Amino acid sequence: MSSLGFNPYNTLNTTARAIDAGGAVGKPEASGNQIAEGIGDFRAALQQAEQTAMQTAVTGADPHAMVQALSNAELMLDAVVTIRDKVVEAYQELLRMPV
């Protein structure tokens, strides 16, 4: 199976290495860029899955490539939905806090 292109564990591994090295965990550099890259990777995976599915339907290209691309897109979608659910949950917790 091909690489997802979007690895939600990259940031966690970077933080763990910084802690193991004895350094203090500081402010992440350009975290907005990481989010933008993640969204771009997600969009690219969906576009690739769509193109592969159309090629398979029209020209009879390799069906295994189509299944692989669709599985990749499904994994990416699951990751995005999980992240969205966590953000909504955190927002709801903030709303429940007494003022």
Results as ranks from 00 to 15, higher is better:
A49T: 03
I83L: 14
T59V: 13
Q51S: 15
L46K: 13
G22S: 10
Q92F: 07
S3T: 13
A49S: 12
Q48L: 12
E93S: 08
E50D: 15
A90F: 05
V80E: 00
A73F: 05
A21E: 09
Y91N: 08
Q47C: 06
A45D: 10
G22K: 02
G23V: 04
E50Q: 14
A61D: 14
D62A: 08
G40H: 07
I19P: 04
V87G: 00
M66V: 09
D85E: 08
S31D: 05
L70N: 05
T11P: 02
M76I: 08
L70A: 04
D78E: 06
V58M: 08
L77Q: 08
V88Q: 06
A65L: 11
E74M: 05
S3K: 07
Y91E: 00
Q48D: 14
N7T: 09
L12F: 09
V80M: 07
S2M: 02
P63L: 04
A44C: 10
A57T: 12
L46E: 08
A57L: 15
T15E: 10
A30T: 11
G60C: 07
A79I: 10
D20V: 14
T82W: 03
L70S: 03
A18L: 12
I35K: 08
R43N: 06
S71D: 13
I39H: 10
V81M: 03
M66Q: 15
A44P: 01
A90G: 00
R96F: 03
I83K: 01
P8V: 06
G23A: 14
N13W: 11
V88I: 09
R96C: 02
G38H: 01
T52N: 07
Y91H: 07
N13E: 12
D20F: 13
P28T: 03
R17M: 10
Q55R: 14
M97C: 05
P63V: 06
V87M: 01
V88P: 00
G23I: 05
Q48V: 11
D78P: 00
A16Q: 12
A57R: 14
G5M: 02
D20Q: 15
E74R: 02
L77E: 01
G23W: 11
V99W: 11
M97S: 07
A73Y: 02
N72T: 08
T14E: 15
L95D: 10
P28E: 05
P8I: 04
A49Y: 04
P63D: 06
F6N: 06
L95Q: 08
P63T: 09
L75Q: 12
Q55F: 13
A61Q: 10
K27W: 13
M54E: 15
A18Q: 14
E93Y: 06
